[in-house]
């Protein structure tokens, strides 16, 4: 088991380096000079520009800059951005609300996705199954922002159940609608995955054996169908946490939430490359960490992996 974790950790390293390098390259090899653009129309004096370049290591070769950046990430000291505010502070302000949103979305998609998927899979071909399937197709077909409008118009404006936008310092209630919208597409995928997996498991030989033992229908579903079916679903949910945080860019825009998405957008526009790369790197790290957790969970769910 320890070796299993160790091996997984080792595999993570090249992925981390590769992904951050990719992002770093994408941002820093862009044409144009952010420093030259700083002083507006007239530009800053050459000496000041040089000083700024030196401060941000912009004169160094690409790989050296990358190493400085990695060092900054691990010491959590990335210096100030062009406006003088520490990059870490900007990010620390942005992340909590996005994280909260993503976690709420995960909970929503897990509970409803697995719940509906399980019922649909157990009653494959029945009315409930077909209804749920049509809805899941719709959820996948509609872009998140369209879903957001629909929710705003109906749940917010017409019915008045939930606040239309979240704004600054949102509370649980005002985050509920954004979280639902954010969860929408993934919910549909989880539902369909669970449904397929459950429908496949109930025809498995070992489930028939469990029934032949004399177990009741509830016991068979709970002990033999659900747990076995969840293994592929768990993988999906884990991989999804990172996607949700990135996907919240759209949701945050619609609901006026000042999180990672808004910060990232502003940073791109202002050419705050360090902030952009840091946010992306953190999202990559979140993705990697979530996947590691999933792998461990996987090992808990499936003994074949635990002892492999």
């Amino acid at each position: 088991m320890l070796w299993y974790i160790g091996r997984r950790l080792l595999q993570v390293i090249p992925v981390f380096i590769g992904a951050t390098l990719l992002v770093y390259g994408m941002v820093f090899l862009r044409p144009g000079d952010p420093v030259a653009a700083l002083g507006g129309e007239r530009g800053l004096p050459e000496a000041v520009q040089e000083a700024i370049r030196a401060q941000f290591h912009l004169n160094e070769p690409f790989f050296v800059q990358y190493l400085y950046f990695l060092k900054g990430i691990f010491t959590w000291d990335l210096g100030p951005d062009f406006t003088g505010q520490p990059v870490t502070e900007t990010i620390a302000n942005a992340f909590p609300v996005t994280f909260e949103l993503a976690v709420m979305a995960i909970v929503i998609e897990t509970v409803f996705g697995i719940g509906f998927g399980l019922i649909a899979g157990l009653r494959k071909g029945k009315v409930f199954d077909s209804t749920v399937l049509v809805w899941s197709l719709l959820l996948i077909a509609l872009p998140t922002f369209v879903l957001g409008f629909v929710a705003q118009i109906f749940l917010g404006v017409k019915l008045g159940w939930l606040p239309v936008t979240a704004g600054r310092d949102p509370n649980f209630e005002s985050l509920l609608m954004p979280a639902m919208v954010l969860a929408g597409t993934s919910l549909a995928y989880i539902l369909r995955l669970t449904r397929t997996s459950v429908a496949e498991t109930i025809t498995a030989d070992h489930v028939r054996t469990a029934r032949a033992k004399g177990l009741s229908r509830g016991q068979v579903t709970q002990r033999h169908v659900l747990r076995n079916s969840l293994i592929p679903v768990v993988t999906f949910i884990g991989a999804d946490l990172g996607n949700l945080m990135a996907g919240s860019i759209v949701t945050e825009g619609i609901f006026n939430i000042n999180g990672v998405g808004g910060t990232l957008f502003q940073s791109i526009v202002r050419g705050e490359n360090v902030t952009v790369v840091t946010i992306t790197t953190i999202l990559v790290l979140v993705y990697i960490a979530a996947n590691l957790i999933v792998d461990l969970l996987y090992a808990v769910l499936d003994p074949r992996i635990r002892y492999a």
């Binding site: 030989d205 054996t209 032949a212 033992k213 004399g214 769910l301 499936d302 003994p303």
Partner: peptide, 22 residues
Amino acid sequence: EHMRGREIGLVPQDPMSNLNPV
């Protein structure tokens, strides 16, 4: 369900797939 196992037992065909792996 009462009859299964108690009155009539089953030994299935393929030992590889008939036990729940988890």
